[in-house]
């Protein structure tokens, strides 16, 4: 479904601040794969998602989505295949538009937008059904402005908007990191449900090792712009947080004193 070949990305090339964000990333996601990505700050996780989504273009390498070369297809055109949820709960929705208007906008991801009404009565009914499937009471607030929702509600809505049109690839960028524990748990549960329901091919970046182990069928660890460890479906079953930390020390041969504080257990 998604294939990355030898992806390289350098920021501030040729200056003292030069940063090799991605160094030869090779990655292949098969249909239905749910890969969790962990790594400390600056490992290149977000850059990787941005390259896949087309926010930035790689300096070298090739991105293939559903057997099509997508390397230099701009973000807004690539979005027809990709659903995204950001870390910031405010980033995935339009605050001054109502819930139903936001959902209608999300519906336009996969097809050309027309001059027909965005929210028809038929769609309203559909939206209500879709919203009641996540069961947080939004189905009765279709005409509420999204800016009035709480962070948790907004993130749940973002997740729903990114998934209900069944994207070929779902990208989740630490989408529970900015929420309080109970809300984070809710969104994690929803993620699991929605990905299973729509059989989505998913790439999820997270800071939390236990979340990375709990969710998905594959796991990979990134450091300094490289994938340093991968666990397939078999290996992942027996993984524990202690395993992961030991693995990291073994591969990188350095103490995780700093990194450990960054990676929340």
């Amino acid at each position: 479904m998604l294939q990355l070949k030898q992806i390289e990305k350098v920021f501030y090339e040729g200056t003292p601040d030069e940063k090799r964000a991605l160094q030869g990333i090779d990655l292949k996601l098969n249909e239905g794969d749910f890969v969790t990505v962990i790594g400390s700050n600056g490992a290149g996780k977000s850059t990787l998602l941005n390259v896949i989504a087309g926010v930035i273009f790689p300096d070298f390498g090739k991105v293939t989505i559903d057997n099509q070369d997508a390397t230099f297809i701009p973000e807004h055109r690539r979005a027809q295949w990709i659903g995204r949820v950001f870390q910031d709960p405010m980033a995935g929705t339009a605050p001054h538009m109502t819930i139903e208007e936001n959902l209608a906008l999300a519906l336009g991801r996969t097809k050309k937008r027309s001059l027909l009404p965005g929210v028809s009565s038929k769609r309203k009914k559909e939206f209500r059904e879709i919203l009641s499937s996540i069961d947080i009471g939004l189905e009765n607030r279709l005409t509420t402005k999204v800016g009035l929702l709480s962070g948790g509600e907004r993130q749940a809505l973002s997740l729903l908007m990114a998934t209900f049109t069944k994207p070929k690839i779902l990208l989740l960028d630490e989408h529970t990191a900015a929420l309080d524990p109970s809300r984070a748990e809710l969104v994690t549960r929803l993620t699991k449900e929605l990905v299973e329901r729509h059989q989505l091919t998913t790439l999820m970046v997270t800071h939390q090792m236990d979340q990375a182990i709990e969710l998905g069928n594959r796991l990979m660890m990134m450091d300094a712009g490289q994938i340093i460890f991968e666990a397939n479906e078999e290996d992942k079953k027996d993984l524990t947080v202690e395993h992961l930390i030991a693995k990291f020390q073994e591969i990188r041969g350095k103490k995780m004193a700093n990194d450990r504080s960054l990676l929340t257990v």
Binding site: A53, E75, H76, R77, A79, Q80, I82, R84, F86, M90, A91, G92, T93, A94, P95, H96, M97, E101, A104, L105, A106, L107, G108, R109, T110, R113, S114, L115, L116, P117, G118, V119, M161, A162
Partner: peptide
């Protein structure tokens, strides 16, 4: 009428949250 159409919603989203608009295929 225009601002309530599908294209109109995308126009409003562009002004409201352009990062989000792009992630939903809007040519901002």
């Amino acid at each position: 009428w225009l601002l309530a159409t599908e294209a109109g919603l995308a126009l409003r989203a562009t002004g409201d949250n352009d990062r989000m608009a792009k992630s939903f295929s809007a040519n901002t």
